[in-house]
């Protein structure tokens, strides 16, 4: 991933296509990963939507790369919230994939091979509350500061720090329980 600098962004008014390409290459992977962690159905299409919404506002971004990242993940956060609200109101119609059917029961061999770490980070994160999970996504995947995360979630930095501490404590406890249950 190419590192984006404030000087690159400053060229936006003279060459918007080039700067937009640089921004997309630098930040689209983390936006995509954030949307995957948020459980969006089609994270690639929503990533495209996020950058399409960013384009007309790119020339008016304040605060350099930091301000740009705050804006992009604000858009991504809003899109994921809209997605979950829409999904909550309408029935989900998807193609049937046996490997994604959660009603299946793991075999004895599966239980033997599974361990706490193999279960995956997303499965463990699913045990957290929405706000706790969102704080970890924004802090770790989006690489945002306490203040940026607070601005996106419309909370104070102190509240974000508290959510972060609880989220990590709960995750640690989940891991210890998994390890303890592993035969």
């Amino acid at each position: 991933m190419e590192t984006l600098t404030d000087e690159m962004l400053a060229l936006g008014s003279s060459n918007p296509a080039e700067v937009f390409t640089l921004v997309y290459q630098a930040l689209s992977p983390s936006v995509h990963g954030y949307l995957v962690a948020r459980g969006v159905d089609d994270p690639e299409a929503v990533t495209h939507d996020v950058f399409l919404a960013l384009y007309p506002r790119l020339a008016s971004v304040n605060g350099g790369v930091k301000g740009l990242k705050t804006l992009i993940f604000s858009i991504a956060h809003a899109r994921s919230v809209d997605h979950h609200r829409l999904r909550a109101r309408s029935p989900m119609i998807t193609e049937y994939l046996p490997e994604l059917d959660s009603r299946s029961t793991a075999s004895a061999e599966d239980h033997a091979l599974d361990s706490a770490l193999d279960a995956g980070a997303l499965e463990l994160l699913a045990h957290l509350g929405d706000d706790q999970r969102e704080v970890l996504n924004l802090r770790i995947i989006a690489d945002l500061s306490l203040e940026q995360t607070a601005a996106i979630m419309d909370k104070t930095p102190g509240a974000i720090k508290q959510l972060q501490r609880r989220a990590l404590g709960n995750l640690k406890q989940e891991l210890e329980m998994k390890v303890g249950n592993t035969p």
Binding site: M1, Y24, Q25, S28, P29, S30, V31, H32, G33, Y34, V36, A37, E44, T47, H48, F51, L117, G120, A121, L122, L125, L136, N137, I140, I141, A142, D143
Partner: peptide
Amino acid sequence: ELRSLGAGSPPEP
């Protein structure tokens, strides 16, 4: 591992 979710290549535009 969670961090690695955002470390892939850019999606095809």
